[in-house]
């Protein structure tokens, strides 16, 4: 406990608990010297005899190498024999709350474009797997978004207030839902879902389970076949009766994502390509016509 008093009292003042997970807790803190806020994630060591767990060492080592304006940065690591405290820059608002709090500003097409560009420009090097509005933080004044989704950087594994999004498969790419091999295209899919949601302020897919999520995707984007997705038949989806895999009335992306300019619809369609091999890459997305007049 001496240690706690020492670090907390000297450098950071602990304010309130903002999250809780299997790893430990997340606090909001104030940096006494700089008078700025920070979030502090305390990771307790489950097996104390083994010292700092390998997963923590690998996670922190990775965070130490990431330095990008659109990534929540790791400011400090405070260590102890029983836990480490990871101190991150603090932003109060996540994209999900931002859309709820600012229904008008949040729908500004230029803002959507800028946020999308920022999210894409960061997704080069890292495979996130779990991008969603909840783990994209928003600096409302500066109009900057920062992704807080790097394993240990994820601010809240299980939020204090449980939300539907924790378990929702709504942002997961089809190849993730059917347990196929996946890579960076899964993130482009998620960013596509977030893109659509920034335009309409409604989640593009609501599916509560994997099966309904797949049906929603196919209903909107068409049932894949061996031509649009070579090898799809070996992935364990029974495609012999395509009608059984769609529900409701067929609608197009431009019907669902109303108000998005045509180049935006084109980019969105390429991001939501069911076949991961044909899905647009982050690099190509960034030079898409949609961003040309930004």
């Amino acid at each position: 406990m001496d240690y706690l008093i020492d670090t907390m009292d000297n450098k950071y003042e602990q304010l309130e608990t903002i999250g809780r997970g299997n790893f430990g807790e997340v606090y909001k803190c104030r940096d006494r010297e700089k008078n700025t806020f920070a979030s502090m994630k305390r990771i307790l060591f489950r097996y104390q005899d083994d010292g700092v767990p390998g997963s923590v060492i690998r996670g922190v080592a990775l965070l130490k190498e990431l330095d990008h304006p659109n990534i929540i940065s790791l400011l400090d690591v405070l260590d102890d024999e029983k836990w480490v405290d990871l101190v991150f820059e603090y932003l109060e608002m996540d994209l999900w709350r931002f859309m709820g709090t600012y229904p008008r500003i949040g729908k500004d097409p230029n803002l959507t474009k800028s946020f999308l560009y920022q999210i894409l420009s960061d997704s080069y090097r890292i495979l996130h797997r779990n991008l969603k509005p909840r783990n994209i933080m928003v600096d409302v004044d500066k109009k900057i978004v920062k992704i807080a989704d790097y394993g240990l950087a994820r601010p809240v594994d299980a939020p204090v207030a449980f939300t539907y999004q924790v378990l929702s498969p709504g942002y997961k790419a089809p190849e993730l839902l059917i347990d196929a091999k996946y890579s960076t295209p899964v993130d482009i899919w998620s960013v596509g879902c977030i893109f659509a949601e920034m335009v309409t302020h409604h989640p593009l897919f609501n599916g509560q389970c994997e099966h309904t999520a797949i049906m929603e995707m196919f209903s909107l984007l068409g049932v894949p076949n061996v031509e649009t997705w070579p090898g799809v038949t070996s992935l364990g989806i029974n495609l012999s009766n395509p009608e059984a895999l769609v529900s409701g009335v067929r609608r197009s992306l431009s019907d669902v994502v109303k108000g998005l300019e045509p180049t935006g619809i084109d980019l969105l369609a390429q991001m939501l390509c069911l076949n991961p091999c044909r899905r647009i890459t982050a690099r190509d997305a960034l030079i898409h016509a949609y961003f040309r007049n930004a």
């Binding site: 996670g59 990775l62 080069y124 090097r125 890292i126 495979l127 996130h128 797997r129 790097y150 960076t184």
Partner: peptide
């Protein structure tokens, strides 16, 4: 999950 998030 933290293994190799750096893209290939």
């Amino acid at each position: 999950e933290l293994e190799n998030p750096l893209t290939s």
